[in-house]
């Protein structure tokens, strides 16, 4: 299943691009619709992948809790300009639990927090960007297995700008004309200040909270892993030995009525 999912995704994207280029003159499939379409298709494919993966109720509720905590952190810091705790948390979740969980935590956090901060055309883009941040952390871990604290901090820092970049693609394609590299740079320049705050706050949160949060998440991860191990049988002979070890034996009174 997973094998043909990625090719199918790229096929659709190429199809969309081809369609917009060939018919560009007549029907005018605008770039904004095209960009939104590609992001939409990407989100659908990633969710589809999640649907088909073997996920236990434990993982579902852990993802939901992490998403809700991130959303809560975002809403409670909403008054501060772009001091964004979500990115940090999502990256750490992806780092500990893997790409799929990371993506789901990120996109859930975006969707859930917007129920309280206001849904908007930005919602799918945020779901996409944060989802990607979470997933990328897992790949980053696989690529750089022994990354130290500062390397990870750098990764957090980079995502501050990367996130801004993805969100800028939305503003740029939907509302700016002409779509040139100058206009993209200009769009980016206006958000540079916010992105820098975002990047710095990521590093800040990571350095302050990172150790503690990773420890907490690892604790949960271990609990989940341990419960997944195949159930072992207690050999019958063992039982007898245990009875002896008991300090109080109630064997004389033990028993069923009737």
């Amino acid at each position: 299943m997973a094998k043909w999912k990625a090719p199918l995704f790229f096929l659709i994207v190429i199809g969309l691009l081809a369609f917009s280029i060939t018919t560009g003159k007549q029907v005018k499939l605008s770039w904004s619709l095209l960009a939104a379409g590609i992001v939409g298709v990407a989100i659908i494919f990633l969710y589809w992948d999640f649907e088909q993966s073997p996920v236990s109720p434990r993982e579902i509720s852990v993802i939901a809790v992490l998403g809700a905590v991130a959303a809560l952190a975002r809403v409670s810091l909403a008054a501060l300009p772009n001091i964004q705790p979500v990115t940090f948390l999502v990256i750490v979740s992806g780092y500990v639990f893997g790409a799929r969980t990371g993506f789901m935590v990120g996109s859930t956090a975006a969707l859930a927090s917007n129920f309280f901060l206001g849904q908007g055309p930005w919602t799918p883009w945020q779901m996409f960007a944060w989802g990607l941040a979470g997933a990328s952390a897992a790949y980053f871990r696989a690529a750089v297995p022994n990354a130290g604290k500062w390397v990870l901090a750098l990764f957090q820092f980079a995502w501050g700008y990367l996130f801004g970049c993805i969100m800028n693609v939305w503003t740029w394609t939907a509302f700016i004309y002409p779509l040139s590299w100058q206009s993209f740079l200009a769009t980016w320049a206006t958000s540079l200040w916010f992105d820098s705050l975002h990047a710095l706050s990521n590093v800040f949160f990571y350095l302050i909270f990172g150790g503690g949060v990773i420890k907490i998440l690892n604790r949960v991860k271990k609990k989940i892993e341990v419960s997944r191990l195949p159930v072992q049988d207690v050999p019958a002979s063992n039982n007898h030995k245990l009875l002896l070890y008991k300090t109080i034996t109630y064997s004389s009174i033990k028993g069923l009525p009737r």
Binding site: P57, V226, S227, P230, V231, Q232, D233, V234, N239
Partner: peptide
Amino acid sequence: IPDFYGGKIGG
């Protein structure tokens, strides 16, 4: 137990 929790079971 043991479906959700895992662990060791006898009997």
